[in-house]
Simulated scan of single mutants.
Amino acid sequence: MIYGIGTDICDIRRIASTLERRGERFAQKVLGERELEVWRARSARAASRGLAYLATRFSAKEAFSKAIGMGMRMPMTWRSCEILNVPGGKPVIHLNGELAAWFAERRLRAHVSVTDETDYATAFVVVETND
């Protein structure tokens, strides 16, 4: 049964502007440790790849927060929700700390899809109950 659905569209130019003003501190606020490693590696190869990665993760976390009905308030935090990729490339949501416990207590599971184009990144999240 569907628990919630969330979607988000993010203007990559806005993310670029914030990153330019705040530098890596912005990425450190939004990304978890494993995401930061990927962001740094992609940014080192091509700044545009790092920017797209950051924008899709920002958008996916916004969509996830909407799907669980919390917005960005505890236990939902930017860093407690990571959008990682399995070896085949499929994005998956990995939760940490209090958010992981909250999610497990409710026996939920999440599915995420992300995409980006020149100016926009979008994400779609479906959260289901395991009942």
Rank of each mutant, 00 (worst) to 15 (best):
M1W: 10
E24G: 11
A63Q: 06
A27W: 02
I9E: 03
A63V: 07
E33L: 14
A52E: 15
T77E: 15
N85G: 08
E98H: 09
I68Y: 02
I12M: 05
W78A: 01
F103T: 03
A123K: 03
A60E: 08
L19Y: 13
S48D: 15
A27G: 07
W39S: 08
S80E: 10
A60D: 00
V86G: 00
M1I: 14
M72A: 04
S80D: 09
E24Q: 11
L108V: 08
V126L: 14
E128K: 03
R107L: 10
K90V: 14
G4C: 08
G6V: 04
E117W: 05
A55T: 02
E82T: 04
S59D: 07
E35S: 09
L95F: 10
R40P: 04
R13H: 12
S17P: 01
M72N: 08
I68N: 02
N85T: 14
I12K: 09
E117G: 13
E37W: 08
I2V: 15
G6D: 00
A55C: 00
V125T: 09
A52C: 12
G32P: 01
A104K: 14
A123Q: 10
K29N: 10
A110M: 05
K66W: 07
I2P: 08
V112E: 07
G71P: 10
L19H: 12
V92L: 07
A47R: 13
R22T: 10
D116S: 11
K61A: 04
R21A: 10
E105Y: 08
R109K: 14
P91T: 07
E105C: 10
I68T: 07
K29S: 13
I93V: 14
V127N: 00
R22K: 12
E33K: 13
L99H: 04
V114Q: 08
A60Y: 01
A27R: 01
G50W: 06
H94C: 09
I15W: 00
M72W: 15
F64K: 00
G32R: 01
S113M: 01
T56I: 04
D116A: 08
R13N: 12
E62P: 09
A67I: 05
A60H: 01
D116K: 01
T77C: 01
R109L: 13
A110Y: 00
R57Q: 07
A63Y: 05
R42N: 04
R42D: 03
G6P: 08
I83S: 01
A100E: 13
W102F: 13
E20G: 11
E98R: 10
S113V: 05
E62N: 05
L84N: 09
M72G: 02
V114C: 11
S48A: 13
R22E: 14
G69W: 09
D119T: 09
M72F: 15
F64D: 00
G4T: 09
Q28Y: 06
T129D: 11
L84M: 11
E98Y: 06
R34L: 14
E24P: 05
F58G: 00
T18S: 10
M76H: 11
L54N: 02
A52L: 04
S48F: 04
R14D: 10
M76C: 14
V38L: 09
G88D: 15
G69Y: 06
M1A: 11
P87N: 03
A100R: 15
I68C: 12
G50D: 05
R13F: 06
L36K: 09
L108I: 14
